[in-house]
């Protein structure tokens, strides 16, 4: 069953002024329930605009967005309903924190849904657990947390709404390598545990290759490709042509194969590469 379907979506900023810009041009796709989609593309390729249209924050200039087969702009008054269904975490979400305690801030989303106190509490604790915030942190002021912790608290604020689709706009931007790794595996675990649809907007091919099963590539407001992760990163030349690259380890193994080693195509992670290479060496009796 498709959880999000988009038809001929367009978005134009500043129409009829010298600042006119087509942020998104005629994009159509369908995302199935349980998919973990990576959305990649250059800065200004329309990724952020596209995801803001998926939960109805931006009204498309033309085209339709369907969530669970329902056109979200059918009743504009009820657009809020879809914001709970499609949870969107913005870039640098720590700038949205405002409550006295982390706990209250995470509860902002669920309490806007009009849930009971009990249910809100349950969801806050669950969400905090998913992003690895301790009980002690929940009692603190959000402004006393470290950068990485603030980020996780803000993400928990969206997860607590228990959305069917979770969209994260560059959740790892500005974090150190350890922070990136931890956050990424937490998101991956969350996706597996709930079998939710997750869309990850990212600049890091390594991150996308690690966690996503499908990849969408945007270029200058248009959809350039949308396929399984392996298929996308096997098309290195096309990606290069629009100035994107494949993960480093894929480049290395591709080169090794060109040099005559019998490695399979589309190796996306270091772990997998290590596995394949030791296998190969064993077969040749060198290990």
């Amino acid at each position: 069953m498709s959880s999000i379907k988009v038809e001929n979506l367009c978005c134009t900023y500043g129409a009829k002024t010298p600042f006119e810009r087509h942020a998104v041009k005629d994009v159509s796709f369908e995302i199935q329930k349980g998919d973990f989609v990576g959305l990649i593309g250059h800065t200004g390729s329309g990724k952020s605009t596209l995801v803001s249209m998926l939960n109805g924050l931006i009204k498309p200039s033309s085209g339709k967005v369907y969530v669970d087969s329902v056109d979200i702009w059918q009743k504009p008054k009820e657009i809020r309903k879809f914001r709970f269904k499609v949870g969107l975490v913005f870039q640098y979400p720590e700038y949205q924190l405002f409550e006295e305690t982390v706990e209250k801030d995470i509860a902002f989303g669920p309490s806007n849904m009009g849930l009971s106190e009990e249910e809100i509490n349950k969801r806050v604790l669950n969400a905090a657990k998913f992003v690895g915030l301790t009980d002690e942190m929940l009692k603190k002021s959000p402004f006393d947390l470290s950068g990485g912790e603030k980020r996780r608290a803000a993400i928990a604020g969206v997860i607590a709404m228990d959305p069917d689709v979770l969209i994260l706009d560059e959740p790892t931007a500005g974090l150190d390598p350890v922070g990136r790794n931890v956050l990424l595996s937490q998101i991956s675990q969350y996706q597996k545990a709930r079998n939710n649809t997750v869309i990850l907007v990212s600049h890091s091919m390594e991150d996308v290759a690690r966690v996503c099963n499908k990849v969408m590539v945007m270029n200058k407001g248009e959809m350039f490709m949308f396929d399984k992760t392996q298929e996308i990163f096997a098309r290195a030349d096309e990606l290069n042509s629009i100035g994107l690259r494949v993960p480093q380890i894929t480049r290395v193994t591709d080169r090794l194969r060109e040099m005559g080693l019998d490695l399979p195509k589309g190796i996306l992670t270091v772990d997998k590469a290590v596995l394949e290479i030791t296998e190969l060496l064993k077969k040749e009796g060198r290990l």
């Binding site: 803001s52 924050l57 913005f90 979400p93 700038y95 989303g109 604020g157």
Partner: peptide, 16 residues
């Protein structure tokens, strides 16, 4: 711009 962004972020959490 900042106000716009923060408003969007809070709206995404269902702020009315």
């Amino acid at each position: 711009e900042e106000t716009d962004k923060i408003m969007s972020a809070q709206k995404a959490r269902g702020a009315d």
